[in-house]
């Protein structure tokens, strides 16, 4: 055939848009169902899949939509407490882990010291140890240290994950020229100042991506707080909403409004920062 590949491809774009749009709609349907359920009474949740049908605009009974589920969540069930806990836990763990991982990655990328290759292999070894293997002995350790039912027991193990050290090391090896660091030293800059004013700005995209990765990981962490925390006033959203299901199992509207409250903030955050996030996610994998 004489038509070049690129021309032939352009002709095929139509069906591709159709296929992609179909898949996109399938992907969005659970979100739509969730949002609709959160704003409906239970009678309407069972009677209508999405918006309640009626004789309002577009055949939808808009007046039957309600925020009663959210009111119950915030007043009667005190979900505000769980939101505050989640925000606090996620923010602290993201900030601390990003700071320590950036420091550790910097040390491995830009310093020559005895034992560096040993530490690097320690980082790689920690990456492949399955979390489920540590569940039983980790619980025992937290218990023995007297950290059960404390935020310290939840946060301390994650202040400097090997995954983050590895990501920052990879980013800094290429992004931060060693000559720049050396000339700053000759000019008399202190080590902390070099790190904050030269190194960190050079890997800014990685800082943003890693902040988000850890914030999200902590926000969505369920099994950690489920095992370690006992006092309901300390529960983050993940555990609190799941408890809600245990108590109000058939109250779909209530459970879906709790789920919506839990996932909306992270989705919004991601919409704002998606570019950095995705580039950070893939940068660890694209190493050949």
């Amino acid at each position: 055939m004489d038509i070049p590949l690129s021309r032939r491809r352009a002709l095929l774009l139509g069906p591709i848009y159709v296929a992609l749009t179909f898949c996109a709609i399938l992907t969005l349907v659970p979100f739509a169902w969730l949002i609709c359920a959160a704003f409906k009474t239970n009678a309407d949740v069972f009677a209508h899949n999405f918006l309640p049908m009626g004789d309002g605009f577009l055949g939808v009974a808009w007046d039957r939509l309600t925020v009663a589920n959210f009111e119950r969540l915030f007043t009667e069930l005190g979900i505000g407490r769980a939101i505050a806990n989640s925000v606090m836990l996620s923010a602290v763990s993201a900030l601390v882990a990003t700071f320590f991982c950036a420091l550790g990655g910097y040390a491995l990328a830009k310093f020559n010291f005895k034992g560096r290759s040993f530490i690097l292999s320690l980082v790689l070894a920690s990456l492949v140890i399955p979390g489920s293997l540590l569940m039983a002995p980790g619980y025992k350790l937290i218990h023995d240290l007297g950290l059960l039912d404390t935020y310290a027991g939840l946060l301390l193990p994650g202040i400097s994950p090997a995954f983050g050290i590895f990501l920052f090391r990879q980013a800094m090896v290429n992004a931060a020229p060693t000559a720049l660091i050396e000339s700053a030293r000759i000019d008399g800059a202190g080590e902390l100042r070099i790190f904050f004013t030269i190194i960190l700005p050079l890997v800014r995209p990685m800082v943003g991506a890693y902040l988000m990765i850890t914030f999200l990981g902590s926000w969505n962490n369920f099994i950690g707080p489920q095992i370690i925390l006992q006092d309901p006033s300390r529960f983050p959203l993940s555990v609190a909403i799941n408890q809600l299901r245990g108590m109000y199992g058939t109250d779909y509207g209530l459970i879906m409004s709790g789920t919506l409250v839990s996932i909306a903030p992270v989705l919004a955050l991601f919409l704002l920062l998606q570019k950095e996030f995705i580039s950070g996610l893939t940068s660890g994998a694209v190493k050949g």
């Binding site: 369920f222 909403i241 459970i255 879906m256 996932i263």
Partner: peptide, 29 residues
């Protein structure tokens, strides 16, 4: 596909579910 428009939007839509925590996916499903 070269020449495809709206790639960023499609990518965003397909990626969005993986931001939802497992516990919330479990509740939803």
């Amino acid at each position: 596909r070269p020449g495809l428009r709206g790639r960023a939007v499609f990518r965003l839509v397909f990626f969005a579910p993986s931001l939802v925590g497992l516990v919330f996916v479990g509740l939803l499903f």
